[in-house]
């Protein structure tokens, strides 16, 4: 799944518009993510970052433009079919199944590919997040925030995605835990899963990512490598506290 076909990008958004009723959330958004990359999208609250990820999953549907995955047009595909193509989402606010055990949460992640690879995949996931193995039989709702975020990422990985979308994984977590999570994201990318990360925490995100985009009021304002954006005065002023 990680090879791009015919030189196409792994994920490509082309002139995508999206709206919630009369409110237009995305305006002519074009961006791409290539296989093996870590790409980040930064922007302020309400810029449309979460909407962009949701649009990949068809909720809301792109009103115009195209979304392609692996060269295939997925603009009109049903929401529950997207995961089967190999795109996994770690939703904002984690959204783990808090009444179920850690184990059951992880098993839910395999719904889109079936149970064939459960055991080797669990072993891999536990190497990445040893804490989850300790908490295996515990209700997911009793985990700490950081552990819940790890669980959300692990659950997404259980579906063997080619592309991992993350919506603000640093939200509400202690700085130390955030650093841990970002280190893990680097590991995940190194292991061959492409990572597309939506973040408000621009500093961390841009240091991790090879490339980045800046979303302002539903439009892509800037793009470049992580280091370029970190050095960009506009970005520094708006997202990095202006030092």
């Amino acid at each position: 799944m990680n090879e791009t076909q015919g030189g196409a990008h792994l994920l490509e958004l082309q002139e995508v518009d999206a709206a919630y009723g009369p409110v237009q959330a995305l305006k002519r958004v074009s961006l791409h993510v290539d296989a093996g990359e870590i790409v980040t999208l930064i922007g302020a609250n309400g810029a449309g970052k979460s909407t962009l990820l949701a649009t990949v999953f068809g909720e809301p549907r792109a009103a115009r433009g195209h979304i392609r995955f692996n060269g295939r047009d997925i603009t009109g595909i049903a929401t529950h079919e997207v995961a089967k193509l190999g795109i996994a989402l770690v939703p904002e606010g984690r959204r783990i199944f808090s009444g179920m055990t850690v184990e059951e949460n992880l098993l839910m992640g395999t719904i889109c590919i079936g149970p064939a690879h459960v055991e080797p995949d669990l072993i891999k996931v536990f190497e990445m997040f040893p804490r989850l193995k300790e908490r295996l039989r515990q209700r997911a709702g009793t985990l700490s925030g950081g552990e819940q975020q790890m669980l959300a990422i692990a659950r997404a990985l259980m579906g063997r995605p080619g592309l991992l979308l993350l919506d603000e994984p640093s939200l509400g977590l202690a700085p130390l835990v955030v650093r841990q999570i970002f280190e893990t994201l680097a590991e995940i990318a190194a292991a061959g899963t492409t990572v597309f990360l939506v973040e408000q925490n621009a500093n961390h995100a841009l240091r991790l990512a090879g490339r980045g985009y800046v979303l302002v009021n539903g439009e892509i304002r800037l793009s470049g490598t992580g280091n370029e954006l970190l050095a960009n005065p506009e970005v520094r002023k708006a997202y990095l506290g202006g030092h």
Binding site: F57, E59, A78, T79, H80, E81, V82, A83, K84, A88, L89, P91, R95, I96, F97, S98, G99, M100, E104, L107, M108, G109, I111, C112, P115, R155, A156, G159
Partner: peptide, 24 residues
Amino acid sequence: MPMGRTWEALREDEIACRSLGINH
């Protein structure tokens, strides 16, 4: 069975379920 677990998961969080590929 996956079916029963899916019901419970849907009770817990519909959005997460759909992103995991479950047809609600």
